[in-house]
Amino acid sequence: MGMLKEKVDKSKQKTSDKKEEKDQSELILRVNDLSIYYGSNQAVKNISFDIEKNSITALIGPSGCGKSTFLRSVNRMNDLIPISHNQGEIIYEDLNILDKNIDVIALRKEIGMVFQKPNPFPKSIYNNITHALRFYGIKGKKRLDAIVEESLRKAALWDEVKDRLDQSAFALSGGQQQRLCIARTLAMQPNILLLDEPASALDPVSNAKIEELIFELKKDYTIVIVTHNMQQASRVSDKTAFFLNGRIVEYDDTETIFTNPSVKETEDYISGRFG
């Protein structure tokens, strides 16, 4: 396990050097007065907040509070739901990504998403990762091999699967499947990773592994994670936003939220009094 981590760290180091020059507290996403509707039902109500580059932001709150809906709007997955529409803006590199003229395909490549339940394709481990690469015209066995290895290493899965890359992804355990899903997203070199309760469907050991992985990934990526697990939120994230009934009740440094929340609902929720 220790060796594995070391390897991961090394491969991480190379890419993160490039980014070092950028300002650490640069804002990558600015949400302005965003509302999201499903038909006439308003799921997200006029929220505004900023997300920093290379940070982990946790979105917490009871079920149906709008946090997943918000997350799915950042890479326009809500477009798949015909009755959904929105107001306000999400600014990403000076562009409102909710605009009609945004190329959602290119956007989703830069803003990747990992879902609650592991959803590998019914293909081999190798092809799960190359699936999207091939669409983007990346060819050549050498090049694909290199990306597959790099992504699997980043997702801390390489050592477990390197001898059986041509086996079906369904043969992996749930936790491995989820790390494969993370790996195939990383292969696209996204800027932002959206994680929708990535560990909630997994056993505690896999859960811990995923958590460890998220912490590692922070060096290279901006991560927004929806979670129901308070310990997880407090352990991995830098900032925490507490959602309630479609609004952000409180948004602050994670430490502040968990030790000294300024709003009573936040305190009630964190201490497990509801939700």
């Binding site: 997955m77 989703r108 699936h131």
Partner: peptide, 10 residues
């Protein structure tokens, strides 16, 4: 399955 593919920018 469909979501997984679309979310990868395909």
């Amino acid at each position: 399955q469909k979501e997984a593919s679309l979310a990868l920018g395909i």
